[in-house]
C-alpha cells in the first residue's frame, strides 16, 4: 500500500517540476469555462428559460462540470500507448506491482491535484462573477451524485486504457484518441446539457458511454431526473463499465502476447 502512496506523491512531484506548464494548463481550463459561461450568460440575458433550464441551473451545470471533469476525465493513462511503443513496458513487467494499479495510483494523484485547483478556481470565479447557482442539499441526491461520479471515473479509466492498448498493434496511438476527444467534447455534455439536443440525437447519446462522464452525474446533482431515468442511467453506465473492462482485459492479454513475442 505504501508504494502506491509513493506513486501518488511522485506524480505530484512531477507536476511541480513542470509547474509553469501546469499553471498554464489550469489557465486554459479556466479560460474555457469562462467562455462557455459568458456564452450562456449572453443567452439568458434575453430569456428566462431555455429548453426547460433556468439560468441558475445552467450556470451551476457549467461551473460544476469544470470540477467534475477533474475527477472523471483527469488521467495519466494517455502515455500508455507511447510506453508500449517505446518498449518501456518491460520495466513495468519486471517490477513488483500490477500495471493497472500503478496507473490507478497515478490517476488518483492527478485527479486530486486538479480537483483541488478546480475547486479553488471555481470558488474565486464565484466571488468575482456572483452567478446565481444552485446548491444541492438533499443527502440522498448527493450520494447518488457521488456514485455517478465514481461510475463515470471508472468508465473513463477503462475507456482510456483501451486506446492506450492500441499501442500493442500500431505506432499511431494519438489519431484515434484525438478523434475520441472530439466526439467526447460534444457527447459528454461539457458545453451544454445533452437533453437540449433533438430527441433522436439525445437518445443515441444516452446509449453511448460519453454522457456518463459529465452529463449524467450533473443531472443527478440537479435532481432533474425522474426515477426511471436515474435507474436507466446507472444501468447503462454499469453495463458499459463491464463491457469496457472485459474489452480492456482481453486487449491486455492479447497485447502482452504480441509484445513479448517481439522480444522488445
Amino acid at each position: 500500500m505504501k508504494k502506491y502512496l509513493q506513486i501518488i506523491k511522485d506524480t505530484w512531484a512531477e507536476y511541480m517540476m513542470y509547474r509553469l506548464n501546469f499553471v498554464l494548463w489550469r489557465v486554459r481550463m479556466v479560460m474555457q469555462i469562462l467562455v462557455v459561461y459568458f456564452l450562456w450568460w449572453a443567452i439568458f440575458s434575453q430569456k428566462q428559460e431555455f429548453f426547460g433550464y433556468t439560468q441558475s441551473m445552467i450556470l451551476t451545470y457549467i461551473l460544476l462540470s469544470s470540477i467534475v471533469r477533474t475527477l472523471v476525465l483527469g488521467t495519466t493513462t494517455m502515455d500508455i500507448g507511447d510506453v508500449i511503443n517505446k518498449g518501456d513496458l518491460s520495466n513495468f513487467l519486471l517490477r513488483p506491482f500490477h500495471f493497472f494499479h500503478y496507473y490507478i495510483a497515478r490517476d488518483i494523484g492527478d485527479k486530486l491535484l486538479n480537483f483541488t485547483f478546480a475547486v479553488v478556481e471555481i470558488t474565486v470565479l464565484y466571488f468575482f462573477l456572483r452567478p446565481p447557482i444552485f446548491i444541492q442539499t438533499n443527502i440522498v441526491t448527493l450520494l447518488f451524485f457521488l456514485a455517478a461520479i465514481i461510475i463515470g471515473t471508472i468508465l473513463y479509466f477503462f475507456f482510456s486504457l483501451i486506446f492506450g492498448f492500441l499501442g500493442f498493434w500500431t505506432p499511431d496511438v494519438w489519431a484515434p484518441r484525438f478523434l475520441s476527444f472530439v466526439i467526447m467534447e460534444f457527447f459528454a455534455g461539457a458545453l451544454f446539457p445533452l437533453d437540449i439536443l433533438p430527441k433522436p440525437i439525445f437518445f443515441i447519446s444516452q446509449l453511448l458511454p460519453f454522457s456518463y462522464f459529465l452529463y449524467f452525474p450533473l443531472k443527478v446533482y440537479l435532481r432533474q431526473l425522474p426515477i426511471e431515468m436515474l435507474l436507466q442511467g446507472f444501468a447503462i453506465s454499469i453495463a458499459w463499465i463491464i463491457g469496457l473492462m472485459v474489452c480492456a482485459q482481453v486487449l491486455w492479454q492479447k497485447g502482452l502476447k504480441v509484445y513479448t513475442a517481439e522480444g522488445r
Binding site: 440575458s45 430569456k47 431555455f50 489519431a175 472530439v182 466526439i183 467534447e185 460534444f186
Partner: peptide, 27 residues
C-alpha cells in the same frame, strides 16, 4: 483519421451554435 477529427470538430461546433441560438432572436 485527422480529416475525420477535423470534420467532426467542425460539425459539432456548428450544431452547438445552432442549438444554442435556436431560441434567441438577438444576442
Amino acid at each position: 483519421n485527422s480529416m475525420g477529427s477535423s470534420f467532426a470538430w467542425g460539425i459539432f461546433s456548428f450544431i452547438s451554435i445552432f442549438l444554442l441560438t435556436s431560441k434567441t432572436t438577438s444576442v
